[in-house]
Design a protein around this nucleic acid. Structure first.
Length: 646
RNA sequence: GCCGGCGUGGCGCAGCCCGGAAGCGCAAGCGAUUUGUAAUCGCUAGGUCGUCGGUUCGAAUCCGACCGCCGGCUCCA
């Protein structure tokens, strides 16, 4: 006979649990699940040995996970009751919520979400217990006989990739049950605040070849307040949406006449781009890059040699057939062109490392459904460079490159990074193990020196070389893939690149591909969302809005504007016949960094009244001081507005 | 590409379910007001209702195809 298991609680105390008693009886009422020796369990779990246990509360990360998973079950139950014949596939908890995939006899519309949600509330009110059941395979196959997706899961479990050996678990609430490892909240009455958010198609087992199922997404939280806060965060993200800002601030647009995923930049957007690109060029020049230019189209042979037509053809626009059947392609990448520049004559080791830089426009045939604003387009400009160096130089080159990347990104105001490092794939790979190890190690060391977290993507590299990507978190915590640095052991081979070494022998260079912004368009979008459109002074297309109070002040405002322009600043006089209040509102909505109201006071005193974007007003500012302050703010690329108060 | 939703003046929307003379707000132009820190007032102009086809005496409204956009899947700089 088993003795009474001794439980060590999170507060350090120990209790003995009477035999057969569930772990929940030792925990507080607020618990929705239990952590037993670090493993999540139901409150109904009966321990058979001494264990360290802790209550999992609804508002804990684990608790929310359990809650969301349980909510997914209840949703599936509701769907099955509303749509007899529905087949349910899988329904996990995800960030902020959950989803469940169904194979339904009919399509769903948004009004169905309301019906399902109401049904869920009814089920929650009934407070049905989530009952854990252990089934043998035969029992499970019988129970889910009319659920082909569950049967498929059970069969794939037989292949042995599941814990728990022969015993499968299911959870039942009411009449409905689902194959599931759990754990779950004790009963449907414990569900928190939830809302069904959207419908989507998703393939069974994420494979395009399989049947497409109907996926219903929902969000679930411990309390109504948390749910409301989440919905508010969504609104905040919407407010920052670069597509919205692009229209409101007159930066760029996507004319339907041109085609999907092809942007035009308006004067203000073009100005911001110009500033971004100029600064980037300046930094590249200082870091030993050479500037090159290459055309947008090429005969097919180039991409045959590079191999792109073998492994990247579906990402390319179809060819144009020219004179006598020659195919020309729009370039999806710049590398082969830069290679031809390298190969235009024999190279010496004395020329290496050779760093060729270009703002190169490339065109990629992205599937229509994936295009998204400026972040996923069909035509884009990469701040692309290819570095040709010796194997010996590779390590140092990668290290200094990563430093260069992060410094540049920081100048644009991104400060929170981590690194993803993709290493050699298991199967086929070009290049020797030593080369791979050396490159991978150089990247790891460089990341370590920058004090950045490194997320390993073991075996995730391309067959032709290891890769790192710099991920940046923006102002509201979203992460974006920015820079990529890719070592390439393959193209130098395919193009038969070489250089004369100091031993007078022929050697093959190593090639490094890198883009810091990724694409100028995407980087532009990330900056807009990061700053919610309120770009720092140095990037703001218009820096100073002058608002004359009456017509008689326009001339003075114009004279001031001329001085600002002379000083390298970007002013604009609002000489419309609007009220001062309206002019200020307009400037504020356009997110102009500084607004100067110019009236009798300013005209007589020669001083300025400065209003910044935060709405802080400072009277009596000297013009020269104002200019100097803005010049230094712009030069520092500071995120903060200057203050003139004291 | 696939699933679901949407497409009405530059922008944001109503009208569509239940076919029967195209509306509102902002922006724009003109006029009046000459104004002190987030919207002064009035007038005017502007739309083959995404495109093409169908049903109908009659289509913004019903049906189909295509184009585009949005949310996902997949993918990715």
């Amino acid at each position: 006979m088993a003795r009474m298991p001794k439980l060590s609680l999170a507060d350090g105390s120990q209790v003995e649990l009477p035999e057969g008693e569930p772990v929940g009886s030792a925990l507080g009422k607020a618990a929705v699940a239990a952590s037993v020796d670090g493993v999540l369990k139901d409150l109904s779990f009966v321990p058979d040995k001494d264990s360290a246990v802790a209550a999992v509360l609804l508002e804990d990360e684990d608790g929310l996970h359990v809650l969301r998973h349980s909510t997914a079950h209840v949703m599936a139950q509701a769907v099955c009751e509303l749509f007899p014949g529905a087949k349910y596939a899988i329904g996990p908890a995800v960030e902020n919520g959950f989803y469940y995939d169904f194979d339904l006899p009919e399509g769903l519309g948004p009004q169905d979400l309301n019906r399902i949600e109401q049904k869920m509330r009814k089920l929650a009110k009934q407070n049905q217990a989530f009952i854990r059941e252990e089934l043998s395979r035969a029992e499970a196959l019988e129970r889910f006989a009319d659920q082909p997706y569950k049967v498929e899961i059970i069969e794939s479990l037989e292949a042995g990739e599941v814990e728990g050996g022969d015993t499968l678990t299911a959870y039942r609430n009411g009449e409905w049950s689902d194959l599931c490892l759990g754990p779950h909240v004790p009963s449907t009455g414990k569900l928190g605040a939830f809302k069904l958010t959207s419908l989507a198609g998703a393939y069974w087992r994420a494979d395009e070849k399989n049947k497409q199922l109907t996926r219903i997404y929902g969000t679930a939280w411990a309390t109504q307040e948390d749910l409301d806060a989440y919905l508010h965060r969504l609104e905040e993200a919407e407010r920052r949406d670069h597509r919205r800002l692009g229209v409101d601030l007159d930066l760029f647009s996507f004319p339907e006449e041109i085609g999907s995923g092809l942007a035009v930049f308006h004067p203000k957007g073009g100005l911001v781009r110009k500033i971004m690109e100029e600064y980037s060029r300046e930094r590249h020049e200082a870091s030993g890059y050479d500037f090159v230019n290459t055309p947008h189209i090429t005969k097919s042979q180039l991409f045959e040699t590079s191999g792109h037509l073998d492994w990247y053809a579906e990402g390319m626009f179809p060819p144009m057939e020219l004179d006598g059947g020659t195919d020309y392609y729009l370039k999806p990448m710049n590398c082969p062109f830069h290679i031809l520049i390298y190969r235009s004559r024999t190279r010496s080791y004395r020329e290496l490392p050779m760093r060729l830089f270009e703002f190169g426009s490339v065109y990629r045939y992205e599937k229509s459904g994936v295009i998204h604003g400026l972040t996923r387009v069909r035509g884009m400009t990469q701040d692309d460079a290819h570095i040709f160096c010796t194997k010996e130089q590779m390590g140092a080159e990668l290290g200094s490159l990563l430093t260069f990347v992060l410094d540049l990104l920081r100048d644009y105001g991104l400060t929170d990074f981590y690194i993803e490092l993709s290493t050699k794939p298991e199967e086929k790979a070009v290049g020797s193990d030593e080369d791979w190890d050396e490159a991978t190690e150089a990247l790891r060391v460089a990341a370590g020196e920058m004090n950045l977290d490194v997320v390993m993507d073991e075996g995730g590299g391309a067959f032709y070389g290891p890769k790192i990507s710099v991920q940046a978190r923006d102002a509201i915590g979203r992460t974006w893939q920015m820079s990529t640095i890719q070592v390439d052991f393959q193209l130098p081979q395919r193009f038969d690149l070489h250089f004369a070494g100091d031993d007078n022998a022929r050697h093959q260079p190593v090639m490094i591909h890198r883009a810091l912004f990724g694409s100028v368009e995407r980087f532009f979008a990330v900056l807009l969302e990061h700053y919610a459109g309120a770009l720092p002074l140095w990037l703001a297309p218009e820096q100073i809005r002058l608002a004359p109070v009456a017509d008689r002040h326009v001339e003075h405002a114009g004279a001031l504007a001329a001085r600002f322009t002379q000083a390298g600043l970007r002013p604009h006089v609002d000489d419309s016949k609007e009220s001062v209040g309206k002019k200020i509102r307009t400037a504020q909505l356009q997110k102009v960094p500084y607004t100067l109201v110019i009236g009798d006071k300013e005209q007589d005193s020669g001083e300025l009244t400065v209003r910044d974007r935060a709405g802080t007003e400072t009277p009596g500012v000297e013009v020269d001081g104002f200019i100097a302050t803005l010049q230094s703010e712009a030069a520092s690329r500071a995120l903060q507005q200057s203050t003139f108060g004291d």
